[in-house]
């Protein structure tokens, strides 16, 4: 498969969020503002990139029988590192992402890419795959975060959009709003992008 194909597949055709519906927990939980979404997306992408690189390099020395525990240890190591870095340098972001930082470990997207791609492909391919999937994930998160922040707080990346008269739709910032907004966005994605590509 060509590298450009690997890359764009993660971004659009097999978009981890809108098409595969992977890693739903952080998608719903931390997207109340665009900034939080971006932070979560970047954190997940770095873990994905790290784990894809290591697993692709080690793919010949890991016996098939114990590959899942090995993958999990590699992923958990990167997650813990990212968590420490966030806590040290971005304490506010770390506080708002909360428990979902350690939970990147069980994001099915990362283990899924390790199992179905990195453990079978070369380093270059795995890196491209990680970047494509990571950007697809981040992009979807940020879109959802922007929609929810606009309606829920009347702001975008913390900049106020509307005048004093705007009454924020608090529902969008709360759990039900996450489900509703993602459901509607997914339907819109199906309608526009996916239908066109087919």
């Amino acid at each position: 498969m060509k590298l450009t194909n690997i890359f764009s597949r993660g971004l659009v055709m097999d978009n981890p969020v809108f098409v595969q519906a992977l890693g739903m927990c952080p998608i719903l939980a931390v997207t109340n503002t665009a900034f939080n979404s971006l932070g979560m997306g970047m954190a997940t992408t770095s873990v994905l990139l790290g784990s894809n690189i290591v697993i692709s390099l080690l793919r010949k020395s890991i016996p098939a029988k114990i590959r899942i525990p090995c993958f999990i240890v590699v992923i958990a190591t990167f997650v813990t590192m990212v968590g420490m870095i966030l806590e040290a340098y971005f304490p506010d972001l770390n506080q708002s992402l909360g428990i979902f930082v350690p939970l990147i470990v069980v994001n099915c997207l990362i283990l899924g890419r390790a199992e179905s791609f990195a453990s079978k492909n070369s380093l270059v391919g795995s890196v491209t795959d990680a970047i494509g999937m990571g950007l697809g994930f981040t992009g979807a998160l940020v879109v959802l975060g922007m929609v929810r922040e606009t309606f829920g707080f009347g702001s975008l990346f913390d900049m106020q959009l509307f005048g004093e008269a705007f009454e924020p739709m608090a529902l969008m910032a709360m759990p039900p709003g996450a489900f509703l907004a993602l459901g509607i966005l997914m339907a819109a994605f199906n309608k526009i992008v996916y239908a066109k590509l087919k």
Binding site: I62, C70, V73, I85
Partner: peptide, 24 residues
């Protein structure tokens, strides 16, 4: 093999922890 991977990851994390602990 599992032992090696886990100990390497433990070492890396111990190192990262000693780097960030002070700042936190």
């Amino acid at each position: 093999i599992l032992l090696i991977i886990t100990s390497v990851s433990g070492m890396i994390l111990g190192f990262t922890n000693s780097m960030t602990e002070g700042i936190i």
